[in-house]
């Protein structure tokens, strides 16, 4: 009994510590969100106000300032389509590399990973020149292909790892039951990869949603995404447009927060998959 009480005491200390760290980390974000609900006067008040009358004026203003729906839609389309495309393709690749003795699969895996090793700043200018040559600048297909390419390495490595963990006996059992290789993948392997696929999709979507540099260089007004719009829209004639930046940023964070919370369970399962032997 004494042991348990001591245990509980320990948990509390750690709990308090964790709470402090959490607050310290989330304070800037909290400040940003609060700002988005303040009137212009409250935003500039000295000393800063923690208690104020919330208002939606900043949001109405942001939506009406122009270039709101376009970038939002662009961000959504690019992150969803490119990631789904990448994951759909990598499922087959990962299954093939995991299950069959593909010649040079080691090399393929390494090369794919090396895509992500190059610093973005180095690649972005050659990429721009290449895209201009191909006429893909300021083009949906160009951007989607680009983001799909960036999503593939992570997806392939993750999914191959997950599929490696699914015992081959399932493949054998299904083959013996009379299934074709594709049916094995569809009926037996995929259903067991649910959490893994959710993890891969969320991680990649967050990456694409957050991506700034390539979008900044390669998009135009029609294909611009939210992060670029935040950066470009920050200054107006009246200086830094805090109402606009805070409101747009808050809208920008919401989908990620929702996605992570909604999929928390499967994300956790996906991330610990393979680390725990059952």
């Amino acid at each position: 009994m004494a042991d348990t009480t001591r245990e509980r005491g320990k948990v509390n200390v750690w709990g308090v510590l964790a709470a402090i760290i959490t607050i310290a980390y989330s304070l800037p974000i909290l400040w940003l969100v609060m700002t988005s609900f303040k009137s212009r006067i409250d935003i500039f008040a000295v000393p800063p106000k923690f208690i104020f009358r919330p208002t939606l004026t900043n949001y109405i203003y942001t939506i009406n300032r122009g270039l709101f729906w376009g970038p939002l839609l662009n961000s959504v389309i690019m992150s969803v389509v490119s990631v789904l495309l990448a994951v759909a393709l990598t499922i087959f690749a990962a299954y093939a590399i995991s299950r069959f003795n593909v010649k040079g699969s080691q090399l393929i895996m390494f090369m794919v990973l090396s895509l992500r090793m190059m610093p973005a700043a180095v690649v972005v200018i050659p990429m721009f020149l290449l895209y201009r040559l191909l006429g893909l600048v300021n083009n949906y297909i160009g951007m989607i292909l680009l983001y799909a390419m960036f999503s593939i390495p992570f997806s392939l490595w993750m999914l191959k790892g997950f599929i490696d963990e699914v015992p081959r006996q399932f493949d054998d059992a299904a083959l013996a039951d009379g299934a074709s290789v594709l049916q094995v993948l569809r009926d037996v392997i995929l259903p067991q990869l649910g959490p893994a696929i959710a993890t891969v999709i969320i991680f990649n979507m967050i990456f694409v949603w957050n991506e700034f540099l390539f979008s900044y260089i390669l998009t135009g007004v029609e294909t611009r995404t939210i992060p670029v719009q935040i950066a470009l829209g920050i200054y107006t004639d009246k200086g830094v447009d805090w109402e606009y930046v805070s409101a747009l940023s808050t809208i920008y964070i919401v989908p990620i927060v929702i996605a992570v919370f909604a999929l928390q369970k499967s994300l956790l399962r996906g991330m610990t998959f393979g680390t725990i032997r059952r």
Partner: peptide, 27 residues
Amino acid sequence: PGERGVSFVAQDFALYPHMNVFRNISY
């Protein structure tokens, strides 16, 4: 395997974890 008309039960009986007993047997 599917074209041979052969049935195979292995030592490490892999039941499909996402199917119930009926769906496993009927697969």
